[in-house]
Design a protein around this nucleic acid. Sequence first.
RNA 1: GCCCGCGUAGCUCAGGGGAUAGAGCAACCGCCUCCUAAGCGGUAGGUCGCAGGUUCGAAUCCUGCCGCGGGCGCCA
Length: 587
Amino acid sequence: MSLLSDLTSIVGAGFETAGLDASFGAVQVSDRPDLGQFQCNGALAAARSAGRDPRQIARQVVTRIEGDHRLASVSIAGPGFINLTVTGRALADCGDAMAGDERLGVPLVEHPLNVIVDYAGPNVAKAMHVGHLRATIIGDTLKHLFRFAGHEVLGDAHFGDWGLQMGMLIVATRRRHPDLAHFDESYEGPYEEALDITLADLQEWYPGMVRQVADDEVVAAEARRATTDLQSGRPGYVALWEHFVRVSRASQEQDFSDLGVEFDLWYGESTVRDLLRPLVDETLARGIAVRSDGAVVIEVSRPDDKARMTPLVLETSHGAFLYGTTDVATVQMRVAELRADLILYVVDARQSYHLEQVFRAARRAGVSGRAVMEHIGFGTMNAPDGTPFKTREGGVLRLGDLIEMVTDAAAARLEESDLAARYSGDERAVIARQVGIAALKFGDLVNNRTSNYVFDVRRFTALEGKTGPYLQMAAVRMDSILARASGRGLAPGAVLPPGHETETRLVLRLLQLPEVIDRAMELRAPNHLAEFAYEVAADFSRFYEACHILTEPDPAVQSAWLGTVRTARRVLELLLDLLGIEVPARM
RNA sequence: GCCCGCGUAGCUCAGGGGAUAGAGCAACCGCCUCCUAAGCGGUAGGUCGCAGGUUCGAAUCCUGCCGCGGGCGCCA
């Protein structure tokens, strides 16, 4: 039980005594710390439904609860706000209970679900760029969060490897290397594994092909034909495709590794390729899909739609499958084979229409079972002028280059520090990498997921204020104190009431952890975790400033403070783990 | 044209119908003989895009308008 839920049941019982529903007793952290640590606004809400005077309800509730030994003060303010402050003893007991719990007071979910988090979405022939950053780290955080809460979670990269772009790449390759055995239909293999086509080549060819396909119907037909041939298993094309996949993935795995992101599954669109034909044929046979202008489509509009939603195309009039087809088949695979209960699609908000089509089509086709499919959309990362982020030359900024920029900035900042001189060059490089990644991740995750945000290189690399490095520094200080104390044979002990004002604030903050975890999960909102981690670090910094722990003469006080530091460190460690941020040994 | 999202301090952003709307940066004033100053304290800065409505109470919910961004069958 968390402190807030304890208080909620105390106040809820008060409401029941007054003949009102206990749910009015919801207690929250106070907006007015000058009046109390906690507040309950239920009397105002209850007044409306019961048609009674809110202050009179509040008085009844207060009369019932004010004798509780855990409450130091209970008062009514304004139109009927109930303000509560707990005793130092009660607070200390809660702090100790948290310190004694492996999970820091955060309960496991009662009904664990099989959750698939579909995130990052790298594509063949494309190096990761800034646009992939948000999908990757938001998805990774949600994966950690759901897993910590007790769900069975699989993170899937959902590799984009099976659409028209594959045909385009095949055609582009044929233009440059027409003599490759891969294009000889009479040749039956084996195919040369070490083709000298690199990711750089593919990236260079691809934009030109996109333009040609858009402008020239002959080229478009050629690309569609190559796509269909690949999808129906032409050996030379499959071998070529395998090569494209290999070189793309090698580059992307490097970026993921630099970000500290790992996937449980690296499935792709191609994973479900054998399900596509049967899916289309069966839905067609059952009358769920229909032929329309030569294509096979599935109607997804509903009578209550404000505007008619266009049908999802499962098979083009040229016999090719689209990403919508693979998306529906992927739902089928995830439900049938992976037993998914909940599928979270961490995908750019601009794809909301497409995903809604897919979800509806999957339900109509009956492949989603009872699984819940949810689009976890996010805004785009823009440059300071509000336009999508570009390099100075106007190109797309590679994720690897972005990582290098923040790492360099962290290294520069470290060099300015007096401490850096004592660290080896290798250690400085490790610290710079950890700090740079932290700045990048926190700078992103602290923003509301759904809004667009501005990536300002100068601001992100300043490393001052509400940033990843600030959290790391707080953690490093905590570690440093705990290590020194341990070296002197000092052990963290139980919280000692009443404690210093800054310590009380810190303990109160730490006790909010269960509610924060719960809210972040319910809203699928990493920024609530990031914001809370900052508050924990900031409250610790104030405590650290006001209370000089290692020189405290009273051993009981010192031991209590060390206990608070250790609990704060564990809370921060949990939050940073969820956010995917590492803490340097020192910085 | 229709649909979706967003307009909050100079800048970047938080704000789950509640009290006096918050934070970081930038500005200004302080704090290192002391556990890491990538830190701490303080000052200043707002008709929450505009107009209505619902409510005891609206930045938050509803309607309209203005502005910005995005999307709208055979690309992903």
